[in-house]
C-alpha cells in the first residue's frame, strides 16, 4: 500500500521526540511493577504465621529481675527443688505431695499497673521445648495464680511444678493473665523469666533439693 505503516515510522525516524520518552516510561513502569510485586512477595514472607498471629507479647528476664509486661510486673524471688512438698493449711492439717520426678517450687511476686489482674496457671518451659503446667498436687490458695494482683503493692505466691529431672536445664517460667473471656485476647502480655538453670545451676539445684519442702498456708 501507499500508506506509511506504523512499524516503519520509528525505524525511519529514531530521534523523533515523543517516542523515546514513551519507551523509557514503559521500561520504568515495568521496573516499578516488578519492584512492587517483589515487595509484595517479600512482605508476605514477613507476615506472621497463623500460629504467631495473636500470640502473647513476651517480656523476658532473669531471677530477681522485675519483668514488666504491659499490664503487670512480675519477679521471681527464689527457686527451690524438693522431692516432696508438705502443705500446712490454716487449720494446721498437713498434707504431703510426692512425685517420681522432682518438684520445682518458684517463689514469685507480681504487681499490676492499672487494673486488678489474675494469672492463669503458671507454665514451666523446659529446655527441650516442653511445657509443664503448675501441678495441682498443692493447695491452689498458695498459688501465685490464686489472688488478684493489684496496683500499689506486690502480691506473693508460689508456682509448684512436678517435672522430670531432665526437664530442669534451661527452664523458664511463664506468667500470663488468665483468659477469662469467651473471646480470647489477641497479643496478651506475658512474662517469661529464666530460672538460671544451666548445667551447673541444675546440678546445684538437685544437690540442694530438700526431701520435704514445707509451704505454709496464708492468714
Amino acid at each position: 500500500m501507499s500508506t506509511v505503516t506504523p512499524e516503519r515510522a520509528p525505524a525511519a525516524a529514531p530521534p523523533r521526540p515523543p517516542r523515546p520518552p514513551g519507551r523509557l516510561r514503559r521500561a520504568g513502569a515495568l521496573l516499578a511493577g516488578l519492584a512492587l510485586a517483589a515487595a509484595a512477595v517479600a512482605l508476605q514472607s514477613a507476615a506472621p504465621e497463623p500460629g504467631e498471629r495473636g500470640a502473647p507479647l513476651t517480656s523476658t528476664g532473669r531471677v530477681g529481675d522485675e519483668v514488666a509486661a504491659s499490664r503487670f510486673t512480675a519477679r521471681v524471688e527464689a527457686v527451690h527443688a524438693a522431692r516432696s512438698v508438705e502443705i500446712a493449711d490454716a487449720a494446721g492439717a498437713v498434707e504431703t505431695a510426692t512425685t517420681s520426678g522432682i518438684f520445682v517450687v518458684v517463689e514469685a511476686a507480681a504487681t499490676a499497673h492499672r487494673e486488678p489482674q489474675k494469672f492463669g496457671r503458671p507454665v514451666l518451659l523446659s529446655g527441650d521445648g516442653k511445657r509443664y503446667t503448675a501441678t495441682d498436687k498443692v493447695d491452689s490458695t498458695l498459688d501465685i495464680a490464686y489472688p488478684y494482683v493489684q496496683p500499689g503493692w506486690w502480691t506473693e505466691g508460689v508456682a509448684v511444678f512436678d517435672v522430670p529431672v531432665t526437664a530442669l536445664t534451661g527452664s523458664r517460667i511463664v506468667l500470663a493473665p488468665g483468659g477469662g473471656g469467651f473471646i480470647g485476647e489477641a497479643y496478651p502480655p506475658e512474662a517469661e523469666i529464666d530460672l538460671g538453670l544451666d548445667d551447673a545451676g541444675t546440678q546445684r539445684l538437685i544437690a540442694a533439693a530438700k526431701d520435704v519442702h514445707r509451704l505454709e498456708a496464708r492468714r
Partner: peptide, 10 residues
C-alpha cells in the same frame, strides 16, 4: 495516488 500521512499513535 496521494499517500496517507503517518498518523501519530499517541
Amino acid at each position: 495516488t496521494q499517500p496517507f500521512p503517518a498518523v501519530p499513535a499517541v
